Structure formats: C-alpha cells, structure tokens
Amino acid sequence: MADVVAGLAVFGAVIAVGWLLVRARAVPADADGVLTRVCFFAATPALLVTTLSRADLTAVVSRSTAVAVAAELAAIVSAWCLHRLVLRRSTAEATIGALASGYVNAANLGIPVAVLVLGDAATIAPILLLQLLVLTPVTFTVLDAVTRRGNPSRLATLTVPLRNPLLWGVVAGTAANLGGVNLEEWCGGYPAQGLEMLGRVAVPLMMLALGMSLAGAPRPLRNTAADEPAQASQPSSPAHPVHAVQEPLTTGSDQGVRAAEQAVDQPPQANEPHTPDAASSSLRGAGRRSGLWLAVGWKLAVMPGLAAVVGLTAGLSGAQLLTPVVTASLPTAQNVFMYASRYGVGKDLARDAVLLTTAGFVPVVLLAAAILR
C-alpha cells in the first residue's frame, strides 16, 4: 500500500510540474496537445510493443482481464439504459452519457496506473482492444445514424480502428511474442533500443500533458454551450478542451485529429434556434447535472463494484481481483468529449465527467489496493 501511495505521489508531482509550466507561461497553453500526440503516435505504441513482446500472454488473456472487459461492457450498457429510460435522454445523449459512465482512459492513465499498481502494463491491452475494435466503431455508427452528422462513408467508420497506432502497437507486440521474436536480437538490437527509448518517455509525457491540460480546464458544471439536440445546431467551442486527460482521438491520423478539432472549434450556424428562456435553461441545467452525477457515480462507484462482483463470481480474489477493479476505477477518457463535440450533443456532460472522474479516481484505486493487495 505504501508503495502505491508513494508512486501516486510521484505521479502527482509530475502532473503539478505540467500545471506550473502552463500557469507560469513557460510553455504555450496548448502544449498538452503536442505532448498527447507524441504519446499517441510514437511513445505509447513503442511502449506497447516492447511490453507485449516479452509479456506472459497467459496473464494478458486471463480471467482477470475477461472480467475487466465484461465489467466495462456491463457498465456502459446499464448506464445507457438509465440515461435513455430513466432520465429520458435522446439516443445520442444517452450514448454520450453511457460512454462517460464507462469508457475508461486506458492509454494515458491506464498504462501508468497499471504499471504502478498491477506491475504490468500488458494487462491493459484487452481493454484497449475492446475500446478500439468494438466501442469506437459502434459509437460512431449509432451517432452517425441518429444525428446524421458523421462521415457518410460507412467504410471510413468501420476502419477507424485500423488507422490507430495504439492498435498496431498491441498487434506488433503480440505478434512478436507469439512468433518467438527477440527484439533485442533483431537487426542487431538497434530497433529494440529505439523502441525502449521511446517507451520510457511515454509515462512522464502523459503525466506532464495531464497537468498542462488541467491548468486551463474550465470549472465543472459551468455551461459552455446550450447542448441543444444534435439536429438543431453545430457544436461550439469550449473554453479550453482538456486534450491530454485521455486516450487521444482514435482516428489514427493527423487528418482525423485535425478534423475532430475543427468540429470542436466550428462556430454555430446562422440558422441556430433562438436562445431559450430562463425557465427552460434552468430545467435543462438541472437535467444536465443529474446526468453528470449519474455518470460520475457510475464510473467511480458502480463500475468498480460491478468488476468486484463479476470477479468474485468468476472465482477471483486478492491480486487477481485487483486487475479488473483497478481497470474499472480509471477515469472517463477524453475521447468521450471529442465524440460529443464532433456530434454536437452532451458536450458539457462529457467534459465535466472527464474532469471529475480524473480528479476522483485516485481514492478509489487506493481503497482497492488497500483491500485487495
């Protein structure tokens, strides 16, 4: 337990350095976006290749990781039902609310937390695959259908995961492992040295980028847009989107990232409906808050609880049970905010869920480690 607390304290110190760099104007306010892309396109894929190439794959594909996958799916599906049927949200809003309740930050925070608490970054690979191969395409398909705002090409939607460097990092590392390829002996070991060097900077860059993003993040529960239905208006820009609290947007190319950012920054159209009166704004604000607290509570309490119940049912205990519980405790990924911005629905809910779950996940992880380690 003491080593987990000490490790999280070190992470906190590095995050604080990133925050101070922006607040002291030593780096540009948008420097977190640059670091995030470095991690996404280079450092994190390299870390995944080196880690998985020498990992014990029986630990990666195990009951623990299967329980983590099952818990995430159960949390998202059940949260969607609550947002849609109890809170009476539209299909698009319920989809964003469900993702805010269960789509975990598996890359930028999942990898360092897995290294610190579980001792192995490879355990996060099945969650990455679930999110890249299943949740992202399904999300785009649903939101494209109900908002009619997405890319009209179904092929582009279905091939999103194939353009993601994180996926190829997992594939390359796993293939090297299964093929018995020793990267340190391949081509004189020089490619392995380059990958090791890039992989070593992934975690500190993630933490610095997180701190930088928090320096300019808006306060939760502050409206930046009216969150009108997607058919009514284009998304407007938030005060400062927190690019680095997440897995970067899974379009897998600079063009895709730029397209998403343009969607975030696109101004409202001239034919946008008139500003609603104070009464309707108040009702909408109360509804947004109820959706937000449902998402945050589901993410930080219910989803780890689901992981624990499913794990106990599967016969897990102790350190084995810690893997799915810690994975379920990870905060909401920034991808959710990017999806909400792209489709112009649930933006405030997604943004605030990212911020609040990022701020609140540490006590949940510490509690899980104290009980199960």
Rank of each mutant, 00 (worst) to 15 (best):
A2T: 14
A2W: 14
V4C: 00
V5T: 14
A6M: 06
V14K: 07
A16P: 00
A16Q: 08
L20W: 05
L20N: 09
L20H: 07
R25C: 09
A26D: 06
D30A: 13
D32I: 00
G33S: 09
G33T: 02
V38M: 12
F41E: 04
A46N: 11
A46E: 10
V49C: 07
S53E: 00
S53G: 02
A55H: 03
T65H: 09
A66C: 10
A68W: 04
A68V: 03
A70I: 03
L73P: 01
A75M: 04
V77K: 06
V77I: 13
R89P: 10
T91Q: 06
A94Q: 08
G97H: 00
S101W: 00
Y103P: 14
Y103M: 09
N105S: 12
A107H: 05
V113K: 02
V113E: 01
L116C: 08
V117D: 03
G119N: 03
G119V: 00
I124D: 03
L130P: 14
L130I: 04
F140V: 11
A145E: 08
A145L: 11
R148H: 13
P152N: 05
P152Y: 13
S153V: 05
T159I: 02
T159C: 05
P161T: 13
N164H: 12
N164S: 04
W168D: 11
V171F: 15
A172I: 08
N177R: 08
E184Q: 00
E184S: 00
W186P: 02
G188D: 00
P191T: 00
G194H: 00
L198I: 06
V201F: 01
P204K: 07
P204M: 15
M207W: 05
L208P: 00
P218F: 02
P220L: 02
P220R: 10
A230T: 05
P241D: 03
E247H: 07
T251F: 01
G256S: 11
E261K: 11
D265F: 14
Q269A: 15
E272L: 07
H274T: 11
T275D: 10
T275F: 04
D277Q: 01
A278D: 09
A279P: 05
S281M: 12
S281Y: 04
G285A: 14
A286C: 10
A286W: 13
G287R: 13
W293H: 01
W293D: 02
A295M: 06
K299Y: 06
G305C: 13
V310D: 04
L312D: 08
G315R: 12
Q320V: 03
L322V: 03
T323Y: 07
V325Q: 03
A328I: 07
A333M: 12
N335Q: 08
M338S: 11
Y343M: 09
A350G: 13
V354Q: 04
T357H: 08
G360S: 15
G360D: 12
V362E: 12
V364S: 10
L367F: 07
I371L: 14
I371H: 15
